[in-house]
Write a protein that binds this DNA or RNA. Sequence first.
DNA 1: TTGAAAGCGCTAACAG
DNA 2: CTGTTAGCGCTTTCAA
Lengths: 344, 344
Amino acid sequence: MSRSGDRPSANVTIVDVASEAGVSYATVSRVINDDAHVKAETRERVRQVMERLGYVVNRQARSLAGGRSHVVGVLVPDLGTGYIGEIMRGIDDELDLARYDMMLYTTHRREAKESSYVASLTRGMADGLLIVLPRNPATFMQTLRQRNFPYVLIDHQGTNEQDHAVGATNWQGAYNATEYLIKLGHRRIGFITGSMDLGCARDRLAGYQAALRTHHFPVDPKLVYEGDFHQPEGYAGGNTLLSLNNPPTAIFVSNDVMAMGAMDAARSRGSRIPDDISILGFDDIPQAQNVRPALTTVRQPLEKMGRVATQMLLDLLKDPQKDVSRVELPTELIVRDSCQAPLS
Amino acid sequence: MSRSGDRPSANVTIVDVASEAGVSYATVSRVINDDAHVKAETRERVRQVMERLGYVVNRQARSLAGGRSHVVGVLVPDLGTGYIGEIMRGIDDELDLARYDMMLYTTHRREAKESSYVASLTRGMADGLLIVLPRNPATFMQTLRQRNFPYVLIDHQGTNEQDHAVGATNWQGAYNATEYLIKLGHRRIGFITGSMDLGCARDRLAGYQAALRTHHFPVDPKLVYEGDFHQPEGYAGGNTLLSLNNPPTAIFVSNDVMAMGAMDAARSRGSRIPDDISILGFDDIPQAQNVRPALTTVRQPLEKMGRVATQMLLDLLKDPQKDVSRVELPTELIVRDSCQAPLS
DNA sequence: TTGAAAGCGCTAACAG
DNA sequence: CTGTTAGCGCTTTCAA
């Protein structure tokens, strides 16, 4: 029965549940937090009352009182790209399973903001932090470490050895992909890089070069176009490479988004894919299999990376003393329709 | 060098600031909240101490005590699509400007979850809610209204007249686009729909049909393929339409993602765009201008929708009695390279 | 213009 | 196994 006329008695607290169930509100708290020291029968009764009254825990109060906020902060550069979207899906699912909420911050490359986000987050807002900043880690990392605040890095390169982190085998993936192209019979293989200030971009380039050298191919700098991971640069890179006097018969592109740009470039010049030019990407974003021809690419297990990082963080939350773990998830060559042996 | 297993003494509170500045902590609270009743001099002194000590407000405590949490909840179906990404960018920027934080929930179409999210959100976690659920609004709307909790709907159709909402002129956009195709000289114009359970999809179809009728063209049901807003259905739709005995010379597709699928379908059949077949999309996601040929499309001001909705919510937070406002932002035909007059 | 004090809803000792 | 109680950091009356 609604006693006061204002809002429907929506704010059911632990106290309401307690009095309704005829126990102290500490007991209710125990039930909520799965404390073992509650008689099964009492637990059940409390549960039912909670259900009936529609009780929902107030997370502010909980975290204020020193408990867990059950919120995880997530820091990403932005959301536009399918790349981040995939990682987020993994994070999101895993968080959901553990009944955690997510506080999302996009930095849009405004470094200045990051510190204040982190300050806010570490002040009780969140229990831990997931960081997807494929850029060199910023100053706030210092704060995090000082405060001994739990965090896991995703897809970071060149980070501190003592950070928990999950990444992918960029070098190996690029190596394998290049080798695949070589075995297909390609002799001149172009390469479009990502932003070279990112470790993953450098690793991919290095993998490409290593494969070339292993097979005693010349490493022709003309065949390498410096891109930035965005589609227009893929288009420009494709055009540049294809305009060479002695153009490549295959192009390995540092990510799928640029690969699609390169495909467009090829088509606009009347080159057929894969007949005239083979194109190979990196990431395996969802669109890669929907494009025609479907893109052969190096799968980076993006969703899994998000998933694993989240699990690592959750473990860390349970046991803060946990040893530092740095995981490298394997990449995998996904052969589809955009590559074939050169015609000639 | 962790001293205690717990956290380092980095937690500067309002009390620390107060004692350091030689005032009561109520005064500090006033300064924080821009209360007018503080002597300018005192205010300045407190500000400096806050700065020096690196004070950051604890949002849990604040909202527990009845103040604002300065958090806005955002409910979206998922993040993978460029569509949501654009809206999010607008929300994010605007929230950032107002120094609000964002709590993000993706529902992945798991309706069951939504209610519990909303429950949690309305229990003090957030001050207001932004909802991007292009599906028929769920049961939790009831809760929201009952609790008189501030929220704004984004891109909802067919919602309650009494909800604050921002959308786009879907019908008009589709009408104009179809008319553009007609004026180009097309006589048979195909259409690929979105998920027909969504209001915006229905509006776009209706706009297309209306334009046809206005110009006294037959509305041939064979020319309409029912899609679902995802790329594979765009591909399938393109194929189906192009396989007709009397195929269309232009296809209007209900969103850009499917339009790209349709483009692939056309190409895989050896049709050139726009020479053999014109393709027109809807949304103007960032990729639309990067694809080759660049996609002619109806721009839905996605980012702006996010921005406007956020402003509306923030206004609502300031003045909960504010009149209901329902905004329809204009769509705009963006002419690029994927349409031309039919050859014959 | 400022201070004192009462909670907000909950967790976590500490008793029983 | 369960109850009692002391805060967590802050906003907000109410007094001064």
